[in-house]
Simulated scan of single mutants.
Amino acid sequence: MKAELWTIVGCFVFFVIIAPIYWVLTSDPTGSVALAMTALLCALVSFYLAVVSKQIPERPEDRKDAEIIDGAGELGFFPASSWWPLYSAASAAVVVLGIVFGWWLFIIGVGLGAMSVVGWVFEFYRGVHKH
């Protein structure tokens, strides 16, 4: 987490320096506030990464003397292809169209969205990919 932490801290320092310069040169309040909020967001992410880096054991990526073999092993679970994101996006489109054309279509879209989100959450509890 050390490399990620210092990358985001570098972004924070950059935005802290750039925001007042942008304000002086342009007097644009919208862009200046956006840059300041981006700096605050970088500070928030930096704080999170600093806290998490103290809680996890040292990773091979954080050591200067690490070898490639030190990072070998299982990296995590990566699911196979899934159709549920497509169904969720389609139901979100129906919800938006329901706002435009009528509440009856909105209600249908919410029902389809609930079914697609439940299907997406529980797709690894049944069928071929059951765990």
Rank of each mutant, 00 (worst) to 15 (best):
W84T: 10
G98D: 00
W84M: 13
G71E: 00
A66M: 01
G111N: 06
E67H: 09
E123H: 06
D65M: 04
E67G: 14
D62I: 12
V95N: 15
G73K: 01
K64N: 12
F78H: 07
F124N: 06
V118T: 07
A93V: 03
D70R: 03
S88M: 01
I69E: 15
S116E: 11
G71L: 12
G119S: 01
F106L: 15
G111A: 14
I99S: 03
P79T: 13
W120N: 00
F77I: 09
A92W: 13
G76S: 06
Y125N: 08
D65K: 10
G102Y: 02
P85D: 07
S81F: 09
V118P: 08
G111W: 00
R126W: 10
W83N: 12
E61I: 11
P79H: 07
G73I: 05
G113F: 00
G76L: 06
W83C: 13
V121Y: 04
S88P: 03
R63S: 12
W103E: 14
G73Y: 01
F106G: 07
W103F: 12
I68T: 04
F106K: 04
V100D: 09
F77N: 14
I69N: 13
W120L: 14
G113P: 08
A92R: 08
V110E: 02
D65W: 13
V95L: 10
L112S: 06
A66N: 04
W84F: 13
G98Y: 06
E61T: 11
G102C: 05
V118E: 07
I69A: 15
L105T: 09
V100T: 05
R63I: 11
G109Q: 02
F122S: 09
S81A: 15
